[in-house]
Design a protein around this nucleic acid. Structure first.
Length: 773
DNA sequence: TGTGAGTTGATTTTT
DNA sequence: TCAACTCACA
């Protein structure tokens, strides 16, 4: 069986798979079976008796980690090999070593917007005028420093650098705030672990011993922090295997250092280098186009990409008059292929440089009735209501989390306004205590008037009630938060339609919590749930199995492949992006980005641009991307911009169609809105939505059944958060929280008539759903 | 203190 | 274009 699998590999792949001890560098071109090599190599190690817990595989995205886990499980079932993203790996380690870097085990992870809030507050407190340098620029500078292992104490501005001078003041203050809140930002996860390993030789040695075999995927995207973590863990056991492709390094802006992979052979002298140059994915033509383009880069390792695949069609390069024609044309082509039965929607992907470019495509696809999935719409976990509710959970988990407190103290409105909060903050600063502790002392703060102090005290009391349930299953904690904070009632009472949508989103969060509880019976459920939600992104929700066209940024496309790929807006200032044109390193990265996009295509590829593009509400004339001049014309079908506003796949009917739609100025956007299929509103959360609506269908069915039969056995699914129920003895009550599943599903009910809160196992209780108001 | 209108200002890519 | 922020008013 195993030798069969080995035989299925090429000699080069096999060499990498069978390599066990010592450093290994796999230079893998696109589509060369890199994931296959990694997974088989792990399986090979296991087969040779390496205990699974001695192995860790690090990736950059959850998606990649999940995929690997699934594939390794196929090769070597039931072996708990640790596969995770760098950030998750570090988050776990920090849990064990938190005290040694000055935070608590229950620390909070701040996402970008959280840390931005903290930074803004820091700037305010330091009285720094943010008009000269925006918080974003300062944040970028701090992030850069952290990724390069420069701590707040070590940071020194380059002389004569005004931004640096500001950063040298802000960075330590910002960091102090994080530490005081027992919080870390994304960069800290790496920085703290890197410094921990650097400053504690015993810890380093212990972890080096623990992780004897380390694999790193996409090594070209590691930054200095990641590099030094991996390095520190591979000194006594230098069985470090990295895979990557310098030509696919596209995260330089995030501190990725191309030298890490280019200099790997210098860092690890006895390294075995394996090059995977044969491509199994694309046609010859597509590959030659990609190869020709990337040849214009200076900083790279020469590779000879080749494939035994078919010659394939020419790569199409099409210029459209406007971005609307571009979008409609792409959508029409997809529709035509789908209707003709040649392809399915999921065979297609459309890539663009910036998210803002997706809009016209969405309209066009809806118009054609083609289902699509956008990776990275409004991210679920970034929605206000979700962040609000999660902030309650964060505060329960980590009472020192000032950022969470500020978010929830007046949400729903409790009459705690700006001035009151300002006074609480002043008090907390003065005594160097957390805001929650300051709030506890509200009665003693002189500047606070009675009314404000009472409001704050009520908040603290409500919080304490919630905190009692901290150790319960997440769904239950969440239920208590929704009931006890008044947030659910606040939204339910609102006339605003948007708020009803928010309720539905919260319902999804409850579903997610429930699924988490089922999947993850841990002793600190809240903590791990929060860690989970902080480190997911919506690319992870991308469902390859759905039959939909995929829309995503070029960055998000890395690691994926599709039969047909469209890359739009190949225009100067967009690709290359305008901020990347000044400096050659940045320009090369843009070229790599296009290279990544091109090499996602298996059979067909179309590149396009529009002569006029509306961007930021303004129509402007665009200049073709300089990269277009670097593509080999003999591999391509070039359709130049025509004088008449037509350029399409097939002359004739298609032309007429486009011309008509372009001239039709009285085109009514509302019609498009009405034609919108309901499920396309939020691509990222579609699976959750499906789960929720399936649940509510059962609910309705059971309800009906219940009203017909005399002694109806209530199904646990018939009950949901906030619902009004009736108990034969205690009378009417409201469900405050739910937890568990199936026969063990329990409901906590608050009864009206002073009977207080009671907990029932639903299946064994006489609870009945009552009509809610 | 809360709300809503109006203004401003900023816009790459993501763990 | 759109979201965040400001400011005036209830």
């Amino acid at each position: 069986m195993w030798s069969e699998q080995l035989n299925a590999l090429t000699p080069a792949q096999r060499e990498a798979v069978e390599h066990r001890e010592g450093p290994l560098l796999v230079l893998a071109g696109p589509g060369s079976g890199k994931t296959r090599v990694i997974t088989h190599r792990v399986a090979n190690l296991l087969r040779h008796g390496v205990p699974p817990r001695r192995i860790v595989a690090l990736t950059f995205t959850n998606k990649a980690a999940d995929e690997m886990r699934a594939r390794i499980d196929q090769l070597a079932p039931g072996q708990p090999v640790w596969m995770s993203t760098f950030h998750r790996f570090c988050a776990r380690l920090l849990r064990d070593y938190a005290p040694s870097i000055g935070i608590r085990e229950n620390y909070t992870i701040y996402d970008t917007s959280d840390s931005r809030q903290v930074l803004k507050r820091t700037l305010e407190a330091l009285d720094i005028d943010a008009t000269l340098y925006t918080p974003e620029r300062i944040a970028a500078a701090i992030s850069w420093a952290k990724n390069n292992l420069i701590t707040a104490e070590q940071y020194e501005p380059r002389s004569g650098h005004p931004l640096g001078n500001i950063v040298s003041r802000v960075y330590p203050a910002y960091q102090a705030r994080l530490l005081a809140s027992s919080a870390v930002d994304f960069d800290d996860l790496l920085l703290h672990v890197a410094t921990l390993l650097r400053d504690n030789p015993e810890t380093r040695a212990a972890l080096d011993e623990r992780f004897q075999y380390i694999l790193v995927d996409e090594y070209q995207d590691t930054n200095l922090a990641q590099y030094s973590i991996v390095r520190a863990l591979s000194i006594d056991h230098p069985n470090l295997a990295v895979t990557g492709d310098p030509d696919q390094s596209i995260y330089g802006w995030r501190g990725a250092n191309l030298s890490n992979i280019l200099d790997f052979e210098d860092d690890y002298p006895n390294v075995r280098v394996v090059k995977l140059e044969r491509n199994y994915r694309s046609t010859k033509r597509i590959l030659r186009v990609a190869d020709c383009l990337i040849g214009y880069n200076q900083r790279r390792k020469q590779k000879g990409l080749y494939t035994e695949n078919d010659e394939g069609q020419c790569v199409r390069l099409t210029a459209y008059p406007t971005q609307r024609v571009e979008a409609e044309s792409v959508a029409a082509y997809i529709a035509q292929e789908v209707h003709a039965g040649n392809r399915r929607p999921r065979d297609f992907a459309i890539f663009y440089r910036v998210n803002a470019l997706s809009r016209s495509l969405e309209f066009a696809l809806r118009d054609q009735g083609i289902p699509y999935q956008m990776v990275n719409g409004l991210e679920f976990y970034q929605r206000k209501e979700i962040k609000d509710v999660l902030a309650y959970l964060h505060l329960i988990n980590n009472p020192r989390d000032d950022n969470a407190l500020l978010r929830v103290i007046n949400m729903p409105p409790r009459g705690i306004g700006k001035t009151t909060i300002g006074r609480l903050v002043a008090h907390a600063d003065q005594y160097r205590i957390s805001l929650l502790d300051a709030a506890r002392e509200a009665g003693m703060i002189e500047s606070l008037n009675k009314r404000a102090a009472v409001a704050v005290a009520k908040f603290v009391a409500a919080y304490d009630q919630l905190a009692v349930h901290a150790a319960a299953p997440v769904e239950e904690v969440l239920g208590h938060v929704l009931s006890g904070s008044g947030y659910q009632k606040f939204l339910a009472d609102s006339e605003n339609e948007e708020d009803q949508e928010r309720l539905a989103n919260i319902e999804e969060l409850l579903t997610a919590a429930r699924e988490f509880d089922e999947r993850n019976p841990s002793d600190a459920p809240l903590e791990s749930f929060l860690e989970d939600t902080c480190l997911v992104n919506d690319t992870d929700a991308w469902a390859a199995e759905d039959d939909q066209v995929t829309l995503m940024t070029l960055h998000a496309s890395k690691g994926l492949e599709f039969p047909v790929v469209f890359i739009i807006a190949l225009e100067e200032k967009l690709l290359p992006h305008e901020r990347s044109r000044e400096n050659n390193d940045l320009l090369e990265e843009e070229r790599r980005l296009l290279f990544v996009g091109i090499t996602r295509a298996r059979e067909e590829l179309q590149l396009s641009l529009a002569t006029y593009r509306e961007f930021r509400g303004q129509r402007r004339h665009s200049v073709p991307s300089q990269f277009l001049m670097e593509l080999p014309r003999d591999e391509m079908d070039v359709v130049e911009p025509a004088a008449s506003a037509t350029s399409a796949w097939e002359p004739g009917d298609a032309d007429a169609e486009f011309a008509a739609s372009d001239d039709d100025i009285q085109f009514d956007p509302e019609q498009l809105e009405r034609a919108t299929p309901p499920e396309t509103d939020a691509g990222s959360s579609s699976s959750l939505t499906a789960a929720t609506s399936a649940a509510s269908i059962t609910t309705a069915a059971k309800l009906q059944q219940g009203s017909q039969n005399a002694p109806p056995p209530p199904s646990p699914e018939a009950f949901h958060q906030g619902m009004v129920v009736r108990h034969p003895e205690y009378g009417p009550g409201k469900i405050v929280a739910l937890s568990g599943s199936g026969a063990r599903r329990t409901a906590t009910v608050a009864f009206a008539a002073g009977a207080g809160e009671k907990k029932f196992v639903i299946a064994k209780s006489p609870l009945q759903p009552a009509r809610s108001t």
